[in-house]
Computed example of a mutant assay.
Amino acid sequence: MASTGNLAESRDATGAGAPLTVGWFSSGRGEGSYGLLKAALDTIESGDLPVKIAFVFINRVKGQTKRTDRFLELVDSHDIPLVTLSSRDFRRSHGNRPWNELREEFDRAAIELLRPHSADIAVHAGYMLIAPLLCSEFVTLNVHPALPGGTIGMWQQAVWDVIAGGLDEAGAMIHVSTEDVDEGPVVATSRFSVRGDGFDSLWAEISGFDVGALKEDPGEDLPLFRAIRNASMLRERPFLIETLKAVAAGRIDPTGAGEVVDLTPVVELAAGG
């Protein structure tokens, strides 16, 4: 199993030119999680990403939802070792106790299941659980849909915070996962404008409206909300891929000890922005 040790020493031991090995953590809930994994696999197969996905861990099981089953089928189709542990079933088997009382127990169970596997780093790509022990067991990078100093929490709140703040730009960061949720050292950022063509008319539509009321109706169907979310998703996949490329090349230190790298130019190029 990978640990929080020295990545350079670990990779040197495997030989020069060896691909970066990655443990992939996901909740496999929707298109975002599926798209991140598929984009990574497609780029690996094209030869443009010197990475090997050593295993995939998902906190769901087959039959839980159709979207989860689709995610699991993607993993199986690439013969990647798959480790599953349903957080829903885990909670039920522990008397439906509050999840904040079960996080560490769940992590311990996950760690035991993962002992046969190893990786240079781990990536949380749509992994929806707070993982206080897992992030100590692995050098872990988390994709977070807000810029440093912005939203802590889910992507939905990140979009609403952009709207409520009348901000000119949005973006994402990749940071080291720690026990402090969404507050670990940042290793990379990517930002984009939410003004200009495709946005200004949508901002005008909500001028004078209370954002709290808009959250109730029309909610996430608000055209401006959808536009910001779509722009974010368009960039999320190349952002993660470019970050992994930079880690593999030694330009980004996944422990967070190096400088923050702004990947906006290369991400915008990939996204057609």
Rank of each mutant, 00 (worst) to 15 (best):
P145L: 07
G212M: 04
S207C: 13
V162C: 06
H144W: 02
F239E: 12
L234G: 14
S207A: 10
P238C: 06
H144N: 09
E169D: 06
G184N: 09
P218E: 05
V143C: 09
T255E: 14
A158F: 05
P148G: 06
R251N: 12
G208A: 04
R195A: 06
L129V: 12
F225G: 13
V211M: 03
G171W: 00
I163L: 04
F138S: 14
F239Q: 13
R235K: 12
H144L: 09
L234Y: 01
R195W: 00
G198Y: 05
T243R: 11
L214M: 09
V176W: 02
R195S: 07
I163K: 04
D180I: 05
V162E: 06
W203V: 02
R191K: 15
V187C: 11
L244Y: 04
E205K: 14
V247W: 02
E205W: 01
I206S: 03
T189F: 00
K245R: 15
E183K: 15
T189V: 15
L129F: 03
G219S: 07
D253M: 08
E216L: 13
I163G: 02
G165N: 01
G153Y: 04
G258C: 08
E179C: 13
W203I: 06
R237C: 03
A172V: 13
V159W: 01
R195M: 01
D182C: 14
A172N: 09
P185G: 07
